[in-house]
Structure formats: C-alpha cells, structure tokens
Write a protein that binds this DNA or RNA. Structure first.
Ligand code: FES
Ligand code: FES
Lengths: 141, 141
DNA sequence: ATGATACTTGACTATTTTGGTCAGGTTTAT
DNA sequence: ATAAACCTGACCAAAATAGTCAAGTATCAT
C-alpha cells in the first residue's frame, strides 16, 4: 500500500499555495523551485485541480494559481479525487454482485477491504488544507 | 493508494486455511481451487509466510499447511509484514533528517503522511485472523 | 518399491502503473 | 513586442506487480 507521488505532490503544492492565499497568485515555477517538483509534472497536476475547481488560474505575466474555495473547505478527499489518487482496496467491482474470484458471491475478504477503505477515507475526509497550513505553522514556533 | 494482490491473496488464503485449523493440513491446491488464486503464486506467498513462522508446512501426500500460531494471535500486521506488503506513505527515508525534497528539513507534508501511516497501521494491528473467520461465519447466518 | 501428492526454490517474463519529459502552443501584464 | 506564465497532448523509461515456468525434494498410501 503506497501513496503515489502525484497525490503527495498535489497536497504539497497546495499547502505551499495556500500559505500565500489572498496575497497574490502563486506561479508553478515558484512552487517547483521551493518544493523541488518538476514544473512539467506540476502543470499536469494543476490542470486536474483546475478542472475540479480546487484552484483558479490567472494567466499572463505575474499570473499563477489561487485557491478557488476557502482552505477550510478543501478536504484531502477533494484533492485526491481531483488528481485520481483513489483509495482502492477491493479487487472486484463494488456494484457488481460477483466476487473478485469470478464467483457469484463476494470473496472471503471483501468485507474487510471495504472496511479498510472506509477507515482510510475517514482520515482524508477530516483533514482540510487549512488544517495543514496551521499545523505546519505551529511546528515552526 | 491501492492494496496489491499479494497482500489480498495472503489474507484470503489464510482465512481459508484458518477455517480448517486443527482439523487437517490444507493443501495449496485446494486453496487455489476454492479461492481462484494461481497455485504457483500461492507457493511464493506461502514460502514467505512459512519463513516468518505464520504457517507450518506438512510435506508428502495429505500434506499441506497449518497455522503455526493461534488465529487470535495472528494480526493482519504480521501477515502483511511477512509478504512485504508494507504501508508506505512518506517519500523520504524516515531515519534521515533530510526531506524528500533533498533539503535539510522535512517537507511540508511529511508529518501528514506519517499520521496517515499510523492511522492505517492501527487498523491492521487490531484485526486478527480469528476476527476474520468469525465475521465471515456470522455473515453466513 | 513406486507412484502420486504436495511442498520448495529460483529464475524468468509480460503487463501495468508510475513518474515523469518534451514540444508546441495561448494569454496577458508591462 | 516580449517575457512570464498557463495549457495541452503525446511520448517514454523505469519500477512495481502479478504472475508463469522448470526442476526439483519429501512423504505417504498402497
Ligand atoms: S475483493 Fe470484492 S470479492 Fe474479493
Ligand atoms: S515525505 Fe518525508 S520529507 Fe517529504
């Protein structure tokens, strides 16, 4: 069970961005330099964040990105969802009645993985971008 | 964040095996057929489980595998550990003081991922093989 | 004894996912 | 005008995953 870089970078970049929220747009170039993330890769990530209305873009010189909602209202769930970093524990299709084993009943462990998925998602549902910025600020004191 | 088949199969196979615990050894062939898991793949998995003393092997005709400890004392953590299905959320090396960004301090999100890792591991620490067998039995009623 | 069953080991491989890069745009402030 | 910055899609290499395959060895039932 590993977290991918895409999800990690998305959150990292947004925390960086959120710190300047309301001051001015933040360019990907700056985030790239500060967080050591490839600029090209960041562009892919922000394209998705924009489509899911997590951020807004400001084009042209002095442009960049700004948050499209309040940091308190952006949960990790939203971010992960936007960049397709989904939590997937079961093998089967959930809607289907068939199990991952091809049989007509769910496998011995289906229920367990489903519980696990819920458990993990609970974590993501609770944490907001605002929480992260604050925790990070406190740790500096 | 996805669970791999190796971890999923390991637990699935052990639940199957645990149901016959104390009655007789269970052959991988049987598990393979019942759970629709490749026999060759199961062999790899059980080799690891044996090395970590989760199961014991009984060779020869009518042989198979039996649990090496009580089902109540086998936690998901132990199983996942045995088959190298580790939960990995941070990018950096934990012991190192350096961050995943190559800088001398941990990145903005390090702490978050560390929390997440703990959160997930809590789940695995709680669940035992015995729990799983029982839950499964109850669901049948 | 001897076959059949089942564990044991190690190498090998195909597929998928990941983590990017690259090339070529378009927009807009100065 | 021009440079800064966003935008898009195609492309690609490395790593991880999910197996397969081959060649054993041990043990039991008959
Ligand atoms: S994971 Fe859903 S049936 Fe096995
Ligand atoms: S994950 Fe540890 S420093 Fe970024």
């Amino acid at each position: 069970m590993r977290l991918t870089s895409k999800g990690r970078y998305a959150v990292m970049a947004l925390v960086d961005l959120a710190r300047f929220d309301g001051i001015n747009p933040v360019s990907l170039r700056d985030i790239s330099l500060r967080q050591s993330i490839s600029l090209d890769y960041l562009e892919q990530i922000f394209s998705k964040l924009r489509k899911k209305e997590i951020v807004q873009s400001v084009r042209g010189t002095q442009g960049g990105y700004i948050l499209n909602r309040k940091a308190k209202e952006i949960k990790l769930t939203n971010i992960f969802d936007a960049v397709d970093e989904k939590v997937k524990t079961v093998q089967c299709k959930k809607e289907s009645k068939k199990g991952c084993n091809g049989k007509s009943t769910k496998c011995l462990t289906h229920n367990l993985w489903d519980e696990l998925e819920t458990h993990i998602n609970n974590f993501f549902d609770k944490k907001s971008l605002d929480d992260l910025v604050k925790e990070n600020f406190e740790r500096r004191l």
